[in-house]
Amino acid sequence: MSWNNLCCVGLLLAISALAGCATGPGTDGKRQAQQEEVSPEFRSQYQQVVSLMDQDPSRARQELERLHQARPDLTGPLLNLCILDFRDGDTEAARVCFDRVLAESPEQPDALNHLGVMARQDGEFGLAEDWYRRALTADPDHLPSLRNLGILLDIYQGRHREALELYQAYQALLPEPDPMVAQWVTDLKNRL
């Protein structure tokens, strides 16, 4: 799975998380209650706007800002604005934005994961590990964080046994195994 595909997985989690919480295995009752408080019209508008993020990022940004102003209590629109900043390469704006998300929702795994990615890109591997582990504490099944922490431990820190466990956990959560990660698992097993 390429980095762009991994970002798409994270984006899909963010899309499904209108209340700003990544859904999937392990979604708790509080998150569910937040999502139920959203009107069907707002949810529909939000989903339409998120579908624009790849096709028309500038329009998506305008609409996400409008939705965020309408419902500042929901971190989903803000999270996607952060993702747009990240995609645009504006890491400083993205950092500030993800910090705002975390101020509202300290355990938001997509925000934590993206901060980990940015720390890794800056060569701050210990900090990246901390961000990924915080994301996994918030959601042990958060796919992007499992994969990213595995890559960090495998490639950047030489902690192959730990990486192997993370890759295997990642694969177990997918509906179909990721062929690239399957190769990494085979390679690590052979080396270990």
Rank of each mutant, 00 (worst) to 15 (best):
S39W: 04
R66E: 13
T137S: 09
Q168G: 07
P179V: 14
L136Y: 04
S44Y: 07
G126Q: 11
A103Y: 01
I151Y: 05
S2Q: 13
L78E: 07
N148T: 01
L6S: 04
N113D: 13
L6E: 09
A135I: 08
P109W: 05
S51F: 08
E107I: 06
W131M: 12
H114I: 08
Q69K: 15
R59W: 01
D139I: 01
Y46G: 11
D122V: 04
R100W: 01
R31W: 11
R71N: 07
E104H: 13
E124Y: 01
P140N: 06
P179T: 15
L6H: 06
C21D: 13
P106G: 03
Q35L: 09
T23E: 14
L112W: 08
A60T: 03
V185Q: 02
R31G: 15
T75Q: 15
Q171R: 09
R71Q: 14
H160N: 10
W3M: 11
C8Q: 13
A94Q: 10
L173S: 09
L81W: 07
L153N: 01
Y156P: 00
P175W: 05
Q69A: 15
Q34M: 11
A135G: 08
P72T: 09
K30D: 13
L153G: 01
A135E: 04
L192P: 01
E63I: 02
R134D: 03
E165Y: 00
A33E: 15
L67K: 06
Y156V: 00
L143G: 00
Y132F: 13
T137A: 15
D90V: 07
M118H: 01
D56W: 01
N148S: 08
L64I: 10
Q171C: 05
Q48M: 14
L152K: 02
A33K: 11
V181S: 12
L11V: 03
P179N: 11
L79G: 12
S2K: 14
L6Q: 11
A19R: 07
Q108D: 12
E92Y: 11
A163W: 03
F98D: 06
Q48A: 15
N190M: 14
L115F: 02
E92T: 15
G150M: 00
C82I: 08
G89N: 12
C97T: 11
L173G: 12
P72F: 13
I83S: 06
I155F: 10
E107S: 13
L188H: 01
D90C: 09
